[in-house]
Amino acid sequence: MTLLPISINVSGRLVTIVGGGGVARRKCLSLLEAGARVTVVAPRLDERLMKLADEGAICLAQRPYADGDLAGSVLAYAATDDPAVNRAVAEEAHNRGIPVDVTDDPERGSFTSPAVLRRGDLVIAVSTGGGAPGFAARVRDDIAEIIGQEYAETLLILGAIREKLLTASKNAAYNKHILHDLSAAPLPEMVRSRNFEELDRTLARIAGPDFTLENLGFGRKDSP
């Protein structure tokens, strides 16, 4: 199954998960991390989901799924261990025009959930099109060995540079050239080794003398 990878802003928006087991828990935690308002519909919940409900982090309808439970949702997940229930959730979602992930039958849904690696605002998603989720998780973990927290810190620096460039210059082609060269430079390696002097020299050489960590709002001791 060939899928289109996209990123969806669910912050503050309602997402409904039907199911209360381990799969539902993993979907829920990922959605909460993205800022979604999550409702879980299930007669039984695992311990972590129940704790989230008790803390008020999610809304809970502790009962079997009923038609109409997806009303107002921007996304839906059919994550029960009952194929008939999952089919019913998928049918309601399709009728309402709501994208749905059917965890036990990806072909019946309209999207699948990738294995995700987060490093700050850097998000890396690995998908097998629903064919082998466990392998997607393995690839994600392999990437995690290579892409560390230094990439999140580098992204903060690049974001600050981009904002400063947009404020200081209206030459889009010039800005694009600088950002391209900075992205190609070994900035993450410098951040990882905490070699901030070399990092400053590299930023100044590519972007100009005003683009030092200090001028970008990062002190040496608290550099990102």
Rank of each mutant, 00 (worst) to 15 (best):
I157C: 05
Q149C: 02
F196A: 10
D104I: 03
A152W: 07
N195K: 07
V100P: 00
D105Y: 06
G97R: 07
L187E: 00
P106K: 11
G129F: 11
I124N: 03
D200L: 01
T112C: 13
S127K: 01
I178T: 02
V102N: 01
L165F: 02
L199G: 11
A184H: 13
D141L: 06
S127W: 04
T202P: 06
E145T: 15
E145C: 13
E197W: 01
R96E: 15
T103I: 10
R192I: 03
R205E: 15
L166I: 05
A160E: 11
S169N: 04
V123L: 07
F196L: 15
L158P: 04
S127L: 01
S183L: 05
A93G: 13
I143A: 05
F135Q: 01
I147A: 13
I206D: 01
A160W: 04
I146H: 06
L155M: 11
A137H: 04
A115V: 08
A125E: 00
G134N: 08
V126H: 10
V100N: 00
L122I: 13
V191R: 09
P188W: 10
L182R: 06
A137S: 10
D121K: 11
R162M: 10
Q149M: 13
V102I: 06
V191M: 15
L155V: 04
G159Y: 08
A168E: 15
L156A: 15
N175E: 14
S183K: 05
D142T: 02
D142M: 08
G134K: 08
G120E: 04
V116K: 03
A168S: 14
G134H: 14
D101N: 15
T103M: 12
P133V: 01
I147D: 03
A132Q: 08
H180T: 15
M190Q: 12
N175H: 10
G97P: 14
N95Q: 10
T154V: 10
G148M: 09
D101I: 07
I124P: 03
R108Y: 00
L165T: 04
T103H: 14
I124G: 04
T154M: 12
L199H: 07
E145A: 14
G134C: 07
E153I: 02
V126D: 07
F135A: 05
D141Q: 11
G129L: 12
K164L: 14
K176P: 01
Y151T: 11
G131P: 00
S127D: 02
I147W: 09
V126Q: 09
A152D: 05
P188S: 09
A136N: 07
G129M: 12
A132G: 02
G129W: 09
V126L: 07
L165R: 03
A132N: 15
F196I: 15
A168R: 14
D105L: 15
